Amino acid sequence: MSIVIKFFVAPDREAAAGVAEGGPDGVFESLTFGNFDVEEALIEWESIFTGQSFEEVLEDDVPETVVDPDDGERPLVLAVSRTLQVALSAAGEDRLTEVGRLWVAERAADGDVFEPEIAAWILNGLANLARTLNDEDESLYCWVA
């Protein structure tokens, strides 16, 4: 099964929820990726950036579901935690590469194969998107179909 993942910036949860049916294209600028478990990745990335365990991040209800119209079926919209947004926007290229390398190692332990360059490309794209947030109300979201 193919998974489409689109990260985008929206002014608030209501606006983000409004793209659940058709996705953010034509409404918000987005970054498109595919074929990885984005919910797990969001938890792992935050865990790596903060030094918290996977379980500690999960206990904080990360990632938060904004809308899940089909109760577990796609498409759905997730909110990227403020903690991860700040970490991404503050990270330099070396830190993003390091986080990508650690994420690739975690995925390899579970049998998933990612090239470190792809992980760095994903994280650099997200960091650049996170840096576009220009007020406290705007947030980074993820649409998954």
Rank of each mutant, 00 (worst) to 15 (best):
T50H: 04
A108K: 14
E56V: 05
G34N: 08
R107V: 06
D68M: 06
Y141Q: 01
P11L: 01
D110K: 15
W103M: 07
E136V: 13
E117R: 13
L126Y: 07
C142K: 03
D135W: 07
E106D: 08
A105M: 11
L88M: 08
L133E: 00
P63I: 12
T83G: 13
V67A: 07
A105Q: 14
L78S: 02
I43Q: 05
S81K: 06
L133C: 03
V9P: 01
E93W: 04
D71G: 06
E40R: 15
F7Q: 00
E136T: 10
S53M: 05
A109I: 01
D12Y: 06
V104S: 04
F7I: 04
E117W: 08
A108F: 07
W143C: 11
D68K: 06
F36T: 03
T132D: 04
G51I: 11
V19D: 03
S89V: 05
E115K: 09
L84Q: 03
W45M: 13
D60N: 11
A145G: 15
G111M: 11
V19T: 11
V4C: 04
G100M: 10
G100L: 11
V99Q: 01
G111Y: 07
D61N: 13
E59N: 09
V144W: 06
S139R: 15
A108S: 14
E55L: 14
D61F: 14
D25V: 13
I3G: 00
N124D: 09
V80F: 09
S81D: 02
S139F: 10
L58E: 13
E21Q: 14
I3K: 10
L58H: 06
S30K: 04
I48G: 03
R107W: 08
V19M: 09
G92V: 07
E44H: 08
L96T: 02
V27Q: 10
S2D: 10
D135C: 11
V62T: 12
F54Y: 15
Q52F: 12
A41N: 02
W103D: 00
W45H: 04
L123S: 06
E21K: 15
D112E: 15
S30V: 05
D60Y: 00
E98C: 01
G26N: 06
E44W: 10
P75I: 09
I118H: 10
V67H: 01
S2H: 05
E98K: 09
G34A: 15
S30T: 12
S81C: 07
I43S: 01
D71P: 00
V104M: 05
M1V: 11
L42A: 07
F36K: 04
E64S: 12
T83P: 00
V62P: 05
F33D: 00
P116H: 02
A130V: 09
E136L: 12
M1G: 13
T132R: 15
V66R: 03
P69Q: 05
V67F: 03
E138W: 12
T97S: 13
N134P: 00
D70G: 09
F7A: 13
E21R: 15
V86Q: 12
P69S: 08
D110Y: 08
S89N: 03
E98F: 05
A16I: 11
V67Y: 03
L96E: 02
A41F: 14
